[in-house]
Design a binder for these strands. Structure first.
Lengths: 228, 228
DNA sequence: TGAATAGTGTCTTTCAGACAATATGCC
DNA sequence: GGCATATTGTCTGAAAGACACTATTCA
């Protein structure tokens, strides 16, 4: 076998294909959901998997991730973060495919799902009820869920899933969905407000009960901050 | 341009090269050091960079990382973790090269540095005094340092850098090197022992002062645990 | 005035952090 | 006894967590 480093002839060396796979989370009906696509082509035709695509030769990994995200959901400018790179030589039956996984948080109301030639369905599934996934995509999803919880605990990503102005109940509700447990309202509010990252807006209108205060994020927020 | 997903002819599509780059940390002379190699070949001939190599078509990413690590340092079975994947199209002047970075913690005493045809020098540098690095390797190193500190704070990785039996002073010394600050001895010991992850071994022999107690890690240790 | 949700305060316990004196072994 | 390093405890302040009642709007 040729050693590419020694021969300096690295271009002649066989290269793996590189893809991005997206774990796209959203909240709907008080549930945490993840976007899946049904494959219309081989391999694993007919099975569900994470949306993804090949990285083009002239685009960066993040550009590829944004392209896939936009193609499937129509959303832009959302929270996007690289997760992990999976490169087992046998993970794809077509040959050597290395995938760089990303996770994204989208506001469900902003999404308009779009299909394409290679998929027969695009759908959000509750993370507790995902169908069997092709390739190693369950492993990727599991990894993303772990990262999601960590991010909620230590960074202000949760606000990416809310509208610009939100109530403290909406925020608490979001944390309760992600961590799948209830928090004490008094302690939750005390903690959040003590972080000094929120400012009050106006009072919410058109609710059939005591109207809550609307809050928004302050301009300068630390990237790492213990939330819960 | 051909769309590989639609054409199903993805093998004809131009593929990027994939490398692994290693950030290998060790402690020597009470300093945190990182392993660098001096390039003997173009591009960037004569400049320092992180050790790395192309991922072979039949090996996993982690196998590639272990191979590079072993080739340069001779060590095996050490702490190894994937860091991040860098894929800017212009990061390497030779063409499209995506690199999966790894970080490793090695015990300096176990290392025997080895050169190879493509490098003219292999050397540990104090992280505070690294020479200019080729490509985006400074960015990778910066990222690795951030991860290293996080790992020290929240996981028991520090013990990978110590002998199996160690004194609490050695452990504290390690933390002081990594965080570049001093900790109060009483508070440090109180905190570490309260974690209930250490067990006492025998008293250390052959020291010319009061002999310290040796400790070792218990068998079952949580992966995430707030240390400091 | 009842239904629905918003908003708020106290107590206890735990933990981080500041701080220095005594113990042990070797020479 | 002197040197070098090991070992140990108390106090204070901050924050987490348990816990329940009052306020506001609308129908």
């Amino acid at each position: 076998m040729v050693n590419p480093e020694k021969s300096h002839d690295w271009k002649a060396y066989e290269k793996p294909a590189v893809t991005v796979d997206m774990v796209i989370f959203a909240i709907q009906n008080n549930e945490l959901k993840v976007l899946l696509v049904k494959r219309a082509v081989e391999p694993a035709k007919g099975s569900w998997n994470l949306p993804g695509g090949f990285v083009r030769i002239e685009e960066s990994l993040e550009e590829a991730a944004k392209r896939v995200l936009h193609d499937k959901t129509g959303v832009e400018n959302i929270y996007l973060e690289q997760l992990y790179t999976f490169g087992d030589p046998k993970r794809d039956s077509r040959g050597r495919v290395i995938t760089v996984s990303y996770f994204a948080l989208v506001n469900f109301d902003d999404v308009s799902l779009k299909s394409s030639a290679d998929v027969s369905a695009v759908e959000f599934f509750p993370v507790k009820k995902v169908p069997p996934l092709a390739f190693d995509h369950l492993q990727i999803l599991t990894y993303a869920l772990k990262r999601l919880k960590w991010k909620f605990e230590y960074t202000p990503v949760a606000f990416s899933l809310l509208n610009k102005k939100f109530t403290l109940s909406e925020l608490q509700n979001l944390y309760e969905i992600v961590f799948d447990k209830v928090f004490d309202k008094r302690n939750f509010v005390k903690k959040i407000l003590s972080l000094d990252i929120l400012k009050t807006e106006e009072v919410k209108k058109d609710v059939s009960h005591r109207p809550p205060m609307l809050y928004s994020l302050k301009k300068q927020i630390p990237e790492i901050i213990e939330i819960i």
